[in-house]
């Protein structure tokens, strides 16, 4: 078996941290908005505004909000990833304000994946 390097340890630490942050923070769900240059140019900031407005209006207290960089699918931006505690994360693409609101109500609040806008399952590093 190959020796573990410092970089391997850093990677493992990051993987464990990202998988436990939801549970340890007492959150039930995480919404990550992709804020690379491509995402921002395509309207990602509006998605964040919609999510914060929903949290404010629905008085939601157990949802975590994060931003991340380019996920490599610039042509499908704006994108967002929704993760419910204990479930695999779901990536949504080609979003707009109405779709983001629908995803927030259906998936984040009620746990139903909105398949029509889903791209794939996965996760990425958040800073």
């Amino acid at each position: 078996m190959a020796k573990l390097t410092v970089d391997d340890l850093k990677r493992i630490k990051e993987e464990v941290r990202s998988s436990t942050v939801l549970r340890e923070g007492g959150f039930r769900a995480k919404v990550n908005i992709h804020m690379g240059t491509c995402g921002i140019a395509a309207g990602a900031r509006k998605l964040m505004a919609v999510v914060l407005k929903e949290i404010e209006e629905e008085k939601v207290k157990d949802v975590m909000v994060t931003t991340s960089g380019c996920a490599g699918l610039c042509s499908r931006e704006p994108m967002a990833t929704v993760e419910i505690l204990g479930k695999p994360p779901v990536k949504y693409c080609d979003l707009n304000e109405e779709r983001m609101k629908e995803i927030f109500v259906k998936h984040v609040l009620n746990g139903e994946i909105v398949e029509a806008y889903a791209l794939a399952r996965g996760s990425e590093t958040t800073y």
Partner: peptide, 14 residues
């Protein structure tokens, strides 16, 4: 443009 949205996005997203 909308500096409020930019600052709010940065604050709550990070």
């Amino acid at each position: 443009g909308n500096m409020v949205e930019t600052v709010v996005t940065l604050l709550f997203g990070n």
